[in-house]
Computed example of a mutant assay.
Amino acid sequence: MRLIEREEPGAFIWESKNVTMRSMSAYYLQTFGVVGQFSENISIDKVNFAPDPRSGRSTASFADFVRMSGIKGKVSITGSVFDGPHDDPINIHGTYLEVAGKPGLATLSLAYRHPQTAGFPQFSPGDEVEFVDKLTMSPLLGAHAVVAVVDGPSGMNHTKPLTTMTVTLDRPVPPGVEIGGTVAENITATPSVLVSGNVFRNVPTRGVLVTTRKPVLITGNRFDGMSMPSVYISANAYQWYESGAVSDVTIRGNAFTRPSGPVILVEPTNQVLDPTNPVHHGISVEDNKFDVGDVTVVDAKSVGGFQFTGDTVRRLDGPAHPPYTSPLFKFHGSSDIRIERNHYDKGLNPAVVTD
């Protein structure tokens, strides 16, 4: 029922600075929606991402509404409506490149591994790179270096291979960097994020995907009837290669109604779990309202420092419903978890499952 080849974006923000979209209606965005790439400071305010009610359409995009990749500065998305995409309304991330070769003492060959990712320069001279072990998703010791020279695709032509590049660093390649076992992230091109006062509805996928090490605030939004997690934090080095780890995420004062579970999902792709060395840090879920059925509210993997405080959790169909089977909280390979000062429906058991 849709075109699955994402050949072009509806709008493209490329190598630009201080871009604002305000007071607009995006009735139809062929294939991808609004894509921002290697730009700085992007604001989307009071934009209606929804089909024209006179059109008879039920969808406004065949993929994400808003995808921000490799952005500097700040991404601000406020006061907007996200209604009827065919993929995630908001996805903010970087890109992991896999180490494919070591042609020199300070030189690496890097490769895009997802088949739909190619053609753009992931690094510029002066950018800082961090090397991450694919199994643990943890940075290597001495993992940072500065890019001195890049030889690869420009984003503007086809004169060079589109899926590989050669990067020369300002120092020898750090110990532990392995071909096929290490990925590289551009940590200069990572934004702080504000997602505030938006409405998400009629969404068959996730709501807000965000993976950035800078501060993230998701506040005052309404997520209604989401088919998958309303907020999803990953860091993926095996399928989508979307980076990276978070260190300061606040989810505050939102309303989650009729969600499918888990409502908040933290799921990095590390295959080795170590609670003393988690992938993500500093996630706070506070003062939100969850009106849920038989679903898990939080399912978090490999998080150090997770707080769930001052929240209200209610069952939609009341105490006459048969016994619920889903624990409200699941934690895997995580540590320093605080669940306190919350309000639950009378008789609701705030069960916590940890491993």
Rank of each mutant, 00 (worst) to 15 (best):
D248E: 13
P172E: 11
V203N: 09
A237N: 13
P229V: 11
V208E: 01
T163F: 06
Y232S: 05
R213N: 06
L194N: 14
N186T: 08
G244V: 00
E185N: 13
A245L: 05
G180Q: 09
V195Q: 08
S234F: 00
S234Y: 00
G225M: 04
R222F: 04
D224P: 01
F223M: 09
F200P: 05
V177R: 11
S243P: 05
F200V: 10
M226Q: 08
T190Y: 02
V195F: 15
P215A: 12
D224S: 11
T190E: 12
G197R: 08
V216S: 10
G181L: 15
A189R: 10
P172V: 11
V193H: 12
V177D: 07
P215K: 05
I233R: 04
M228V: 00
A237Y: 04
T205L: 09
A237H: 06
G207R: 03
G176V: 06
Q239H: 14
T188S: 10
N202T: 02
T163D: 06
F200G: 02
G244Y: 00
M226I: 07
T188V: 07
V203L: 05
T168R: 15
V246N: 04
V167L: 15
S243A: 15
V167M: 07
I233K: 04
G180Y: 13
T168S: 15
S234K: 03
P204Y: 02
P172S: 13
V246F: 01
Y232F: 12
I187Q: 08
G176E: 05
V199S: 14
T190H: 07
N202F: 01
T219F: 04
E242H: 11
V193K: 05
V173H: 04
